[in-house]
Design a protein around this nucleic acid. Sequence first.
DNA 1: ATATTTTGTTAGATTATTCTAACAAATTTG
DNA 2: CAAATTTGTTAGAATAATCTAACAAAATAT
Lengths: 219, 219
Amino acid sequence: MASITEENYLKALFNLSNNQGEASISDLANQLGVSMPTANSMVKTLQKQGLCKYEKYKPVVLTEQGKKAAALIIRKHRLTEMFLVNKMGFGWEEVHEIAEQVEHIHAPKFFERMDEMMGFPTVDPHGSPIPDKQGRIQELHLKSLSEAAPGQEAVIAALSDSSAEFLAYLNSRQLSLGTELKILSKESFDQSMTVAYGEKERESLSQKVCEKLLIRIFD
Amino acid sequence: MASITEENYLKALFNLSNNQGEASISDLANQLGVSMPTANSMVKTLQKQGLCKYEKYKPVVLTEQGKKAAALIIRKHRLTEMFLVNKMGFGWEEVHEIAEQVEHIHAPKFFERMDEMMGFPTVDPHGSPIPDKQGRIQELHLKSLSEAAPGQEAVIAALSDSSAEFLAYLNSRQLSLGTELKILSKESFDQSMTVAYGEKERESLSQKVCEKLLIRIFD
DNA sequence: ATATTTTGTTAGATTATTCTAACAAATTTG
DNA sequence: CAAATTTGTTAGAATAATCTAACAAAATAT
């Protein structure tokens, strides 16, 4: 059984590979807030366990076994987040820190009960998919709002940034998953977009924000 | 902040002191499944943090600070057990192992939400009192069934052993917290008792069992 | 294409938690 | 009480996870 530390390295490697295609030692060290020598030596430890492949000066690659292990930790994280929001009344900006701890609990029944109680959700409170019990993750193929064109209508389906700060920003603008947006215009000089939704007739969203909002466009 | 290991030592010291009046190094080592030298050195570490008092060859004594820290961990443990039973449908014999892990989570809001959702329970699923937020524990002054006399009626209010095996035994006899017992007789040669409850007109309970059932006698 | 910067590695040390072996104190027993 | 047993201590070592310092390779920039 992997230690909590090892689990955190696996998760970081999984996320880095998904977001940037590969995971370097420095990315890994940065993500986890440890020094490069520390990351380097842990990668060697994980390799010995067959969880990743690693050659000097090359990017770290998770093995199938490593990917599955990571996905199962992420499954516990996302089920927990959903449980905290749906069953315990937490806001979507409060749950990450708690789930970060709960994900390391070894108690299959605990997470299965959460899953059952929620009716087997497929996404977490930020729209990220919940891996299944085999560690498989369904692809959502969503676009970011910045790829949409004026005149189109879309619904916010997920976020590519779930930091507490970004979530607080969304809360302050009454933006949440499921919010339907009408795209009014896009400024070519700064890529900001003007949209309408709910009570809001004209709201301006910066390029940064648009990139982080993942949408499903209405046909 | 105490590490998980330190938290487990505090809990063990607290329980040993409550059950046997004092805590020796060998008891502590036994309880935690570590060697005596390990327990000895951790006790010194806890002492340096002001959590216990310790002199060579003498029993270990928790300081007020240490007692409070232990009680707050026990609070999280018992709130979790109650939540698992009352809100997640677990059996009372399944929750200890899970709570043993959840008790180390640092997230005050998580436990406060549990507490609120359950309406601020004062005892856990095994009848043990839940310490309050200040780490104070209410005394229940219950008797064990073995102290009761034939002819008396009583209700099971708590257990002095909450092991999965004992709980399974109780389940198999339809005995649970709240079960009302009529004491029919007590054998003087083995201290076993014959009782009636629910559908059962005559059930024999061994001395061991009677000692572990904590009751409130009807006036 | 060389110099500079970034990235990665090795070596060696530190802290936390654990162990075994050897010895010493305290307690129990004959 | 002396012998035997239990309990406790010290010393020394091991493993996991971390660090800094020093050096080496790779990538970037002039």
